Amino acid sequence: MEIIDWSEKDIFITINAFSMFHGVKPFKTGKIMKLTKDTANTYDNEAIACEMRYFGRVGFVANSVNTVVKGCMSAGRVYDKIEDGYFAEVKFLTKSEAIAKILTMDEYLKEIENPESDVHYLSD
Rank of each mutant, 00 (worst) to 15 (best):
D106H: 01
L109F: 01
S123W: 04
F12P: 06
D124W: 13
I99E: 05
S7G: 13
T67R: 12
D38T: 09
E116T: 11
F87N: 10
K110I: 05
I4N: 06
S19P: 00
S96A: 11
E116C: 01
D5F: 12
R77A: 02
T42V: 07
T36A: 06
Y108G: 07
V119C: 07
A49C: 04
H22W: 14
G85L: 12
V69W: 00
S123M: 05
A62L: 10
A40K: 15
G56R: 11
T36P: 00
N16D: 14
K70L: 07
I32W: 00
I32P: 08
Y79W: 15
K91T: 08
P26K: 09
G59I: 07
V68W: 02
Y121S: 13
A100I: 00
N16P: 01
T39K: 15
K9Q: 11
Y121K: 14
K9S: 09
N63W: 00
Y121N: 11
N114M: 02
F60Y: 09
G23I: 12
V78C: 01
F55M: 06
G85Q: 06
V119Y: 13
T104A: 05
I102D: 04
S123H: 09
A62V: 01
L122E: 09
D84Y: 05
K70Y: 06
N45E: 04
I11N: 09
N63A: 07
T67G: 01
Y79G: 12
K91Y: 03
I99R: 08
I13G: 02
T36N: 08
I82R: 08
Y54F: 15
V24W: 00
D44T: 12
T42A: 10
R53V: 13
P115Q: 14
K101H: 03
S19A: 15
A62W: 01
H22I: 04
T29D: 02
T14Y: 09
G85W: 10
Y54P: 00
D124K: 15
F55H: 10
K37A: 02
D44Y: 12
M1G: 15
A40W: 11
K70I: 10
I102S: 06
A100L: 01
A49R: 08
G23Y: 12
E51F: 08
E51P: 03
N45V: 05
M52R: 07
S96G: 12
D44P: 07
D84N: 15
G30A: 05
F55Q: 06
F12Y: 15
I13W: 04
A49H: 04
D44E: 03
Y54D: 15
C72N: 08
V78E: 06
M1H: 13
